[in-house]
Design a binder for these strands. Structure first.
Lengths: 220, 220
DNA sequence: GCAGAACCGGGGACAGCACCCCGCTTCGGG
DNA sequence: CCCGAAGCGGGGTGCTGTCCCCGGTTCTGC
């Protein structure tokens, strides 16, 4: 809260209060219903008029950034904490599990992790940092011989996309469905399990898919 | 085509022609854009007025049934063909691959395979038959010791839901993304790869998710 | 406690989609 | 060939979601 108010300097007291209420309401609704929650719903849930919402956050991206900035920061921290785990595989598995669990309990985040939000550079920045930390995790695990050799960072995006879809379609049982998904995925990612199969899509092509998703959701 | 016309007896020649055009257009648009394609788009693409569409197919379910009935029939046949494959694992893997590829090339089918369409009993019937054939495939593979012991039919639904989400989010590169997904999934499904992890959600709970998805898409 | 600026929010214009109505066209049996 | 009926399709209504406008309200420095 203090963070939020600090990020809105020179604002009248009531305006700051409203801003805060909006961010809280948006966080809640995004978590429950996903990033395509209607703006008017958020305004109503925050107890303000929709005009107030549009004044504080002229674009969907602006609201998104305000809502998810510190959550993403915590994701980065979690990745760094996973790097501190002694066993490379355990660190890798722990973080992948963490990410999927996050998706299962927050639909908005589920989409955000695999969507390029070009209109919110700070979010992009944070996602990139989280991504880089994950790359380190996966390289460490690969070097130790526990992660399959053909794993690439695009596989993470792919798995998160799949898990996001699963979360979306399973509704309230998303946590248990997602948990099972992680079990199967991790079992398929161990080096011992790897067969010579298809390799993942290229990075450029995957980035394009993430950008397209952003456009589809209205986050230019 | 002959099949389609045969399924519309006692219809004036022009009406039969329109009906056919609608089914073809719907199949194409459903395949490209998913089951939530606007009705008016389908009518325009078929070159008829929307009233004509509504007259021939009073509900979304009716159109769905007309469009996907024989495709689903082919899915059942494919499952039975997979049962004829000597090696139990190969049969299982071949059919799972077949299903995921189908999803990757047809967005509508991607959703249909994991959605309960209560308003179209014949579709439900066919899905159930395809499902039962898959259960036989998986039991045979499990008995042979190649498929992980904790596999349940709900895992199929779970994987198809995940793959549907992946297909949805990867757009035109869905085929290659889906192919990689299958590689990882199959590697995680082999008995040798299995660790003691979380078990899949129950059947009842999974059915409920499929029904809910049908309601969300407007297919009561 | 007051003046003026900052802020609020109900309601309206506009767009997309579902679904229907009714005057006109076209088919096809006799 | 011709007429009755089956069939057609262009609007039309209702609903939902986005985004803006403007009359009224509330805060804050003095």
């Amino acid at each position: 809260m203090a963070r939020v108010e600090a990020s809105a300097p020179g604002l009248r007291a009531d305006a700051a209060r409203n801003r805060c209420a909006i961010i809280e309401a948006a966080g809640e609704l995004y978590g429950q219903h996903g990033l395509d929650t209607p703006f008017d719903d958020i305004a109503r849930h925050a107890g303000v008029g929709n005009a107030t919402l549009y004044r504080h956050f002229p674009t969907r991206c602006a609201l998104l950034a305000a809502v998810f900035a510190d959550t993403l920061e915590r994701v980065v921290e979690a990745a760094e904490r996973a790097l501190a785990i002694r066993d490379p595989w355990d660190g890798f598995a722990a973080h992948l599990t963490f990410l999927c669990n996050l998706q299962a309990t927050n639909r908005g985040l589920a989409d955000l992790l695999i969507t390029a939000v070009t209109g919110a550079p700070e979010i992009e920045q944070l996602r990139k940092r989280a991504y880089r930390a994950f790359v380190r995790l996966s390289e460490r695990a690969k070097a130790s011989g526990s992660l399959r050799a053909d794993f690439t960072p695009e596989d993470l995006v792919l798995l998160l996309m799949a898990n996001a879809g699963l979360v979306h379609r399973t509704g309230d049982i998303a946590p248990v469905a997602s948990e099972r998904f992680i079990t199967l995925a991790l079992d398929g990612l161990r080096k011992a399990a790897a067969t010579t199969g298809t390799s993942p899509p290229g990075a450029a092509v995957m980035r394009r898919a993430m950008r397209k998703r952003g456009q589809d959701l209205g986050y230019t």
